[in-house]
Computed example of a mutant assay.
Amino acid sequence: MELTEEERRSIEWDCTRLVSLYATLNDEGRWAEVAALYAEDGVMTRPTAPDVPIEGRAAVLASFEGRPPRVTRHICSNIVIDVEDADHASGASVMLLFTAFGPPLVGNFDDRFVRTGEGWRFAERRGSLTFAPS
Rank of each mutant, 00 (worst) to 15 (best):
L3M: 07
T4W: 03
T4M: 07
E6I: 15
E6Q: 15
R8I: 08
R9S: 13
R9D: 14
S10A: 14
E12K: 05
E12L: 07
E12N: 04
E12W: 01
W13L: 15
T16L: 02
T16Q: 08
R17P: 01
L18K: 00
L18F: 03
L18P: 00
V19K: 01
V19N: 00
S20E: 12
L21G: 04
T24H: 13
T24M: 12
T24S: 09
L25W: 07
L25A: 09
N26I: 04
D27P: 03
D27L: 10
E33D: 15
E33F: 05
V34Y: 00
V34N: 00
A36M: 08
A36F: 01
L37G: 00
L37I: 00
Y38H: 11
Y38E: 05
A39V: 05
A39C: 08
E40C: 06
D41S: 07
V43I: 14
V43S: 02
M44L: 15
R46V: 11
A49E: 13
V52A: 14
P53N: 05
I54E: 00
G56N: 03
A58Y: 03
A58K: 07
A58G: 04
A59Y: 02
A59M: 09
A59H: 04
V60L: 05
V60M: 02
V60T: 02
L61K: 05
A62W: 09
F64N: 03
E65C: 10
G66R: 02
G66M: 08
R67G: 09
R67N: 12
P68V: 07
P69M: 03
P69V: 01
V71K: 04
T72V: 07
I75F: 15
I75S: 14
I75E: 11
C76M: 15
S77K: 10
S77Y: 06
V80Q: 12
V83H: 06
E84K: 11
E84T: 12
E84S: 05
E84W: 10
D85I: 10
A86F: 00
A86I: 04
D87Y: 06
H88E: 10
A89L: 02
S90C: 13
G91S: 08
S93W: 03
S93T: 06
L96R: 07
L96V: 12
L96S: 06
L97Q: 05
L97Y: 01
L97D: 00
T99C: 07
T99P: 05
F101M: 14
P103W: 08
L105R: 11
L105N: 02
V106E: 01
N108W: 09
D110V: 14
D110W: 09
R112H: 12
R115V: 07
T116L: 06
G117R: 03
G117M: 04
E118Y: 04
G119E: 12
W120E: 01
R121D: 00
F122C: 06
R125F: 03
R125S: 02
R125L: 02
S128E: 13
S128G: 15
L129K: 03
F131M: 15
F131K: 12
A132H: 11
